[in-house]
Design a protein around this nucleic acid. Structure first.
Lengths: 218, 218
DNA sequence: GATATACGATACTGTAGAGTTTCGGATCTT
DNA sequence: AAGATCCGAAACTCTACAGTATCGTATATC
């Protein structure tokens, strides 16, 4: 399971599997580039606005090359979304400031905000598709949202463990607040999910919901 | 401004405006039926999956009839979404139980839940479209979400006025919590926004955020 | 360096659906 | 009742795009 072994989506095209004694090997090193291009186009135009030609052009690849690797636009997008999982937050890299609020604030550094914005764009682009494709809906949630929710879960659990917040707290619901409101704000209100918003979210909603008071030290 | 004067979307097609001395008048009484059919199809298949033929079939109308009234599928959908505004919650009909929690719980009676589900379906169907059409995004928010947020604002303001919750409460942010989390749960998690969820939302998130304790008397 | 193969570019095919036109029948107006 | 106009149905055109096929070029393997 190497790093480059990304998302073969299980579809083996070559049935004959003839022995390639001579010639050129299939260059799979460009797969991630193509998938990233697909994500860009997806985020910019949405699934239905997105054409395979756009993706090919963006990746400077031939359309035929894309079809050599993915049997359809659907599979391409599915793989592209799956690629996002690589950005999973490692538990060991989570902030550990000693207070829940400190941890939450530490989570919203600029690179994280930008990453979040891209994920929301991709999510928005997927939506019409999502509605008719439960498999994709699940994959999208797993790749785009669940990592952040999982991180929140860990931070909250830590706060419970050190007695900062009540052990009766509903971790599952609480971990969903921030992603929920960020998604709504971005996807529906089409307003930016910036530091100011996230801070006010922490102080106005999250901290009270944890039974704590929001603070000013940012 | 009569009741039936729904959504002329400002496009006057008849340039000549010749005097129709004889014959049959255009039957605009069916416009709402057609728009409701459009909303149904939209909720079921999403904007991009929706075809004008589907809408015509559902409304038992000819496709030509639709195009006689709306210049394009876009305008049709725009008008259909605008139609939803009719379901605006009248402030005078809002519950007034004496406590904020009582009011909030009273808001989630079954018919309201069903209405909310339909709105979320429509919202989901619109999404890919929304992404490329800010005008529609605004109209959708105004018609589908804003009414509920406005109702929440009123309930919260009342609670402030009678001293139940702090006057420093951020009404705007707090009014958004419930719609945000409901939308996220439905659109992204594709889980039902049912009474159980809404109650736990009130008790686990809203009430603490208001500085109150959730109660059991449902 | 020869050769087989993958590559990017581009031309092509097939289909689905937006929007138009046509037409016989229904219905409002006088 | 008569005539003008609207209706639903269905056939039609046109365009966009998914997916395929072709071709000259580039490159890895031998």
């Amino acid at each position: 399971m190497t790093q480059t072994d990304i998302t073969p989506h299980g579809v083996s095209i070559s049935v004959t599997e003839a022995s390639p004694k001579l010639g050129r090997k299939r260059d799979h090193t460009r797969d991630p580039e193509i998938l990233e291009a697909a994500l860009d186009v997806l985020a910019e135009t949405g699934f239905d606005g997105m054409t395979v030609d756009m993706v090919a052009a963006r990746a400077k690849a031939g359309k035929a090359t894309l079809y050599r690797r993915w049997p359809s636009k659907n599979e391409l997008v599915l793989d592209a979304v799956a690629l996002m999982k690589k950005a999973d937050v490692e538990p060991s890299k989570l902030p550990d400031t000693g207070t829940l609020r400190g941890d939450l604030v530490a989570m919203i550094k600029p690179p994280s905000i930008k990453d979040g914005e891209r994920k929301l764009s991709i999510m928005a682009g997927l939506f019409s598709m999502l509605w008719r494709n439960p498999e994709l809906a699940h994959a999208a949630n797993a790749a785009l949202v669940e990592p952040r929710v999982a991180a929140n879960r860990i931070l909250i659990q830590r706060a419970i463990d050190r007695g900062e917040i009540s052990a009766q707290s509903d971790v599952e619901t609480l971990a969903l607040i921030s992603p929920s409101m960020a998604a709504y704000r971005s996807l529906i209100l089409q307003k930016p999910v910036d530091r100011e918003f996230l801070i006010s979210l922490i102080d106005e909603v999250l901290m009270p919901a944890f039974g704590l008071r929001g603070g000013d030290p940012v």
